Simulated assay, not measured.
Amino acid sequence: MSTDSDIIRQAVDVPAVFAQLYDRHARPIHRYAARRAGPDVADDLLSETFTVAFERRGDYDFGRPDALPWLYGIVSTLLKRHRRVEARAWLSVRPDPTALVTEHHHEALEAVFEVRQLGTALRRMPARDRDALLLYAWGDLDYEGVAQALDVPVGTVRSRLNRARRMLRAAAGRTPAEEVDHGRADTTPIRP
């Protein structure tokens, strides 16, 4: 099976080969774009991402076999143009209202309040920290992948994730000890 790098290298001379890259990575890029900017904009962002990638295929770092971080970097840059749309999407973050119709009304109301607080914290978070956090959480990239996507050193990713986590912890009224390790492959500790 060809690596992404092999496909992009071939696509420089045979453009039709680039469709293989789209087939491999369109779904995660679309899902990420939809979560960030909403389903109404996700199709456009997906299309723009692969258009930019196709146009820049000759500039790709062929030493990197996996192009997914590169594609996430492109869509993250495109999202900067769509920040207003993204801000509206965060405003509409609401839990399922049927969750309120349970015998645990108190817990459900607390969850609604916490979701709103987290949405507000995400909206107020500096864009560079939010991008790192969402690429890690929703893009399912490890620290190195986030660094590649944002074209920054891994240490910068660690700093941005640390700041983002502190902001979310404060918004949720939690301490670092209350966080759950979700078993991500990159379990490098981040110091508060």
Rank of each mutant, 00 (worst) to 15 (best):
S2P: 15
D4K: 02
S5Q: 06
I7M: 06
R9D: 10
A11M: 02
D13Y: 08
F18P: 00
A19T: 08
Y22A: 01
A26V: 05
R31W: 00
A33H: 02
V41A: 15
A42G: 10
A42D: 10
D44C: 06
D44F: 04
L45N: 08
L45V: 10
S47N: 11
S47C: 13
E48F: 01
R56D: 09
R56A: 11
R57C: 08
Y60Q: 06
F62P: 01
G63F: 01
D66R: 04
L68C: 00
W70Y: 15
I74W: 00
V75T: 13
L79W: 01
R81H: 15
R81T: 13
R83K: 13
E86L: 07
S92M: 10
V93L: 15
R94I: 05
R94L: 11
D96I: 05
L100T: 10
V101W: 11
H106N: 03
H106E: 14
A108R: 06
A111K: 06
V112I: 04
L118G: 05
G119S: 14
T120I: 11
R123N: 12
A127N: 04
R128I: 07
L133G: 02
Y136N: 14
Y143D: 12
G145P: 01
A149Y: 02
V154A: 15
T156H: 05
T156M: 06
V157Y: 05
R163M: 06
R163I: 03
R166V: 08
R166I: 07
M167Y: 04
L168Y: 03
L168N: 03
G173I: 09
P176D: 10
E179N: 13
E179M: 12
D186V: 07
D186E: 06
I190S: 13
